[in-house]
Design a protein around this nucleic acid. Sequence first.
DNA 1: CGTACCTTTGAACGACATCAAAAGTTGTGG
DNA 2: CCACAACTTTTGATGTCGTTCAAAGGTACG
Lengths: 238, 238
Amino acid sequence: MGMCAPLTAEELAPVAEIKANRRTLQPGAELYCQGEVCPNYFILVEGWVAARATVESGSFHIPDFALPGAFLGYQPASGRAMTHSAVCVTRVVVCVLPRRRLDELVAGSAKLASRLLHLAACYEARVRDHFVNVSGRAARERVAHLMVELFFRVHRHLPSVRGETACIPLTLDQLGQALGLTGVHVNRTLRVLREEGILHFARRTLEIVDPDALMAAAGYPDRVAVSAQDELLRDFVD
Amino acid sequence: MGMCAPLTAEELAPVAEIKANRRTLQPGAELYCQGEVCPNYFILVEGWVAARATVESGSFHIPDFALPGAFLGYQPASGRAMTHSAVCVTRVVVCVLPRRRLDELVAGSAKLASRLLHLAACYEARVRDHFVNVSGRAARERVAHLMVELFFRVHRHLPSVRGETACIPLTLDQLGQALGLTGVHVNRTLRVLREEGILHFARRTLEIVDPDALMAAAGYPDRVAVSAQDELLRDFVD
DNA sequence: CGTACCTTTGAACGACATCAAAAGTTGTGG
DNA sequence: CCACAACTTTTGATGTCGTTCAAAGGTACG
């Protein structure tokens, strides 16, 4: 999956060796917790995880979601407190990798280090994209943009057919925390998009009603922008 | 500097070898341009650079600034269009590294790859911090938070003495684009902070008037939060 | 000394937040 | 299979923070 996909069996062997057992967690559980040191990395095998930061005022914020295949827990310096929590959105299965041992492997393997470097670059690009989305677009465009991204990450292609659906197991509050909006306002905005005949989001299922209008609303005004985005979004898949 | 600091002379030799000549640019010039492929990486030697994303509505957004020492231009896949521009804020001197050749070096050197991985993780943490700041704090706190970060990146320590100054060569519009505010509102907010006796920003110079109040306004409510932040901000230095 | 850019301030507007309450949904145990 | 509790969604009314538009002062640089 994700992190391991492009590695050969030979390169993977040492990683497989240090891998501790799998772990299953319930929705709301935390893989690691903001402010605490975490001795492990994780590879997400099943379910969705939210990176959640708590601001001193008490409000939450979600800079990114992780889908199966994602590598979780990398930090600039080991032994330092995590700057955000990793919260399970659904039931989750992860594969646990002791930090010290993986760090050692990475330090000794250009292949492994390059792979992680690529992943880190992808995650940074994704966070930047979210940031620009939240900071530069109005609510309607913002919601549409995130929906397109999540659809892509679920299906690995852009919405193009009327009636396609994607399971997006997030509450309105979680969407709001990712979008810099309140859950209430996300709801109102989704209603607008529904009344415009663009999409339908209910019971954690996104239904695409008018793919072209959705892409336009998401900030991909023409075919050129759409195909450029298709290429770029490939890096956003976990 | 930055990227090269922790590498030994031996590790640096091949990098020094592929390094093309230095380049000097004027304020407003672009190292690379959103939507275009860039065949080079850059190490910033002198001056400030802004990463600038243009949204389809035409507005700008600055997810991050780069100070001397920064490594610029890394992308998930080479040969792909850049997702943002790198715009010179001041007069700038960079050292140019041909992408292909550095990629080759990185693929063959665990040391070099690990170093870039660490840098990528630092930049991602910084972008996340900016994101949370913009998305989770009100204008006053937001402005204070950025001022503390920039002060730290200039001086490598937190503001602690009344009257300390830092040169921050940004216009109100540029600050606004980094903060998700208009330049006009940044101005009003800085006035509030000035009238509260917290800081004074004029002619691109930040003067700290009340360090404790500033740290509190920036979202570091107590000594514990402050010292934790001091540690964390070390990763934000270029 | 003039021109271009940046900062500062005011007035009016609008997008989104907040507060509150009702209706729907999901899961659990009897 | 129903009843209940906890959570989520939906909608309305009201408020506010930040934007927009506009114009007047500063500042820097050729």
